[in-house]
Amino acid sequence: MIELVIDQRRKDLGGFEVGRVLPYAKRRAVGPFVFFDHMGPVDMPAGLPRTVDVRPHPHIGISTLTYLFDGEITHRDSLGVQQDIRPAEVNWMTAGSGVTHSERFERARREGGRLEGIQAWVALPDGQEEIDPSFQHVGTTELPTWSEDGIKGRLAAGEAFGMKAGVSTFSPLHYLHLELEPGARFQTPTNHSESAVYVVSGLVEIDDGRPLGHGQMAVLEKKIASVVCALEPSTIMVLGGEPVGERFIDWNFVSSSKDRIEQAKADWRAGRMKLPDMDDQEFIPLPADPTPPANPMS
């Protein structure tokens, strides 16, 4: 059964729009998922300006989970990693005590092309918010897939239906990508206390009730399985897990402590957070900062 429906809100990131779903005023998180952005779909022309890229910026207290349906993003971070992210792969960067990274559209700049994907933030549990930052890139061979009864599925992270993805997570969760043919029916997992269904494209019905279309997320009742029926060809993401407790979000910083967030803001403003090794010539200033930021360390 549906507890709440959340409609994406369009946000301009300075060159292209995303559909923001989480956090939402009436629902700050689903399990450990505290942020959920639908990037695109957008057709990027060859030669697009660098101003469209996401310049270096910081994070604390989370793992970022980037998953694409179309296109390519070049990731660079302060751990020295450079990695191209392609469809059906998982880019899992754990910020912990602090990391910086950039996301650039270099292939689209050369060739043009379509971009679509989801970026989610997974809050780190108590006792692990300040772990050392790390990075994982997980290819398609490490993500379990299945196909039956009009459903093509991939487990992108966590555990569900006896399967486990090759991503080292820090708390119980599930994150599934499903392609549904018209009439296909999928029963949501109940191995975690919270779960939600997000419609990337198409139209579905949950428990033979309210239709759910592009850009909508249905937060489901806790621990109760729901049946998702595709009314037309549809792509959905199913996400959930165990809550990690209250988390505060300010810009790109997430923590159980407001004081820790203020410290992170001060560190970024003062230039105490190292920029990506291979992308250290520019950065995103702290929003609405009344004083110009120092040049972060390279």
Rank of each mutant, 00 (worst) to 15 (best):
S78F: 06
H174V: 10
V199C: 13
T51K: 11
V90Y: 02
E179Y: 08
S234F: 06
K274S: 13
R76W: 01
G31V: 09
R269W: 00
A46D: 08
R109P: 08
G245Q: 15
E242S: 10
H38Q: 12
D53Y: 01
E17N: 14
K223A: 15
Q82W: 03
G271K: 11
A108Q: 14
I206M: 07
Q8M: 10
Q82H: 06
V204F: 04
W251L: 01
P172K: 07
P56Q: 09
Y67A: 07
P285M: 08
Q8D: 13
F186L: 06
R9G: 05
G96L: 04
F36E: 05
A266V: 03
D132N: 13
E111V: 04
L231T: 14
F69G: 08
S255W: 00
A184F: 04
V42S: 02
E194N: 12
G15F: 03
L231E: 15
V5F: 07
F135W: 11
H75C: 03
N252V: 04
P290F: 05
Q83V: 13
H137L: 15
W92M: 09
V18C: 09
I60G: 04
S147F: 07
F33P: 07
L212F: 05
I6H: 04
S257I: 03
P296S: 11
A294Y: 01
D259T: 11
T169L: 09
F283C: 02
L65I: 15
G202Y: 09
I73V: 12
N191V: 08
Q83M: 11
K164E: 13
G241A: 11
Y24I: 00
P182L: 05
F248R: 03
I85Q: 09
R269Q: 12
N191P: 04
L239F: 08
R109I: 10
L13H: 07
S63P: 08
S171N: 08
P133A: 01
G271W: 04
M163R: 14
I73L: 02
S168V: 09
D289N: 10
L68H: 06
T66Y: 12
H57T: 01
K11T: 09
R109L: 10
G202E: 12
D12N: 14
L212R: 02
V138Q: 05
F248Q: 00
H137G: 14
A156V: 15
M278N: 13
G202L: 15
G271M: 11
V21S: 02
D208E: 12
D37V: 02
W251F: 03
R210I: 10
T291M: 03
E194W: 11
M217I: 08
T74V: 11
P182E: 03
G47C: 11
T141K: 12
M237Q: 10
E72T: 15
L143Y: 01
S255T: 06
S102P: 05
G14H: 12
S168A: 11
F16P: 02
D37G: 04
A46M: 07
P41H: 00
G153S: 00
V90W: 01
V254K: 15
N191S: 13
N191K: 08
T188G: 07
L124H: 04
V34P: 01
I249A: 00
G31D: 06
